[in-house]
Design a protein around this nucleic acid. Sequence first.
DNA 1: TATAGCATGTAATTAGTTACATGATTAA
DNA 2: TTAATCATGTAACTAATTACATGCTATA
Lengths: 179, 179
Amino acid sequence: MQLSKTAYVVLGMLRLGRRTGYEIKSLVDVSTRFFWAASYGQIYPELKRLEEAGLVTGTDDDSHARRRRAYDLTEAGERALHDWLTADAPLSLELRHEGALKLFFADALDVDEQLALVRRIRADHQRSRDELGALHPNPEPAPDKRCPRRVLEWGIELNEFYVDWCNRVEREIEDERRT
Amino acid sequence: MQLSKTAYVVLGMLRLGRRTGYEIKSLVDVSTRFFWAASYGQIYPELKRLEEAGLVTGTDDDSHARRRRAYDLTEAGERALHDWLTADAPLSLELRHEGALKLFFADALDVDEQLALVRRIRADHQRSRDELGALHPNPEPAPDKRCPRRVLEWGIELNEFYVDWCNRVEREIEDERRT
DNA sequence: TATAGCATGTAATTAGTTACATGATTAA
DNA sequence: TTAATCATGTAACTAATTACATGCTATA
């Protein structure tokens, strides 16, 4: 039985402690979303599947006022997570960047339109960068909890790279006009 | 009638000249694939739809030995492409980076496993970088054909950023061991 | 003569989003 | 009392991949 990548998002989030589907989704939205998004339509059915497979256990949790079903990682689940993390299968990588796509075809545009496009792309990445920056935790995390922050910093720097690249392209296009 | 993003890949490729579905796919595989992939299962049905919508015209081409159906962009198609390129709808952006996802959960790994992971991610991006580098055209393209090359350079630098980032993380993890 | 490349297409499957439906609790 | 947040789920839809089926032509 092979799991989807999104199943590992669920397992990974549960490794941090008991969580409801709702909590997992909230966590995803402020962390992995930038390199691995997931919707309720994936998370709830996935929790059901993982429970059937014995990788998580659900408990009807009455300690809270609202009805909720919280999940824990089982030992088999922990093993499955670790196996995936250390597997040597090729790492999937997919990007769908509409801005880059438009820029690719931008020879169909005049210089002003090209400039408008590259500025829009830059603004988007600037916004992403700021969003991620706002999530950055001030207190240095414990040594055994450094990884999420590390990847957050990657996201910040990645968007800074994009912004920087847009700046350079903007200048290039402006120079072209004078040619 | 609103078109999918992949429809614009087809329109954009046809703007460069008459092409068959097979040729479009070949072009995609050496260019947009890195930020917008497309398979035969998308391209052939998309060509049919675009023809019905009057944005492209297909011609049974007998100038070649093999049977083939080549497509041209119509004026309506050219307009649709231009409208999309200059539209102010939000630019979609999606990334699914399994390496980053694993790194996010890598607190579950010991130091050696973490190092192995970050090295695999780096190797993948190094390979991507080299692949893209091999595609880089030596001769300076004509002024009205600069955009594809510009985006190719973006892909190269993006992968160089990833490699560089992996190097820094590798050093960080190595430093941690001595702590 | 066999293999690589040209060429077209579909069916089945998987993945994922969006919209909808429901309802409780808490804080303003 | 009302809006925000917590909470769970499903149905319909869209997008995209993969595998399969077919068959021709050029070249080694």
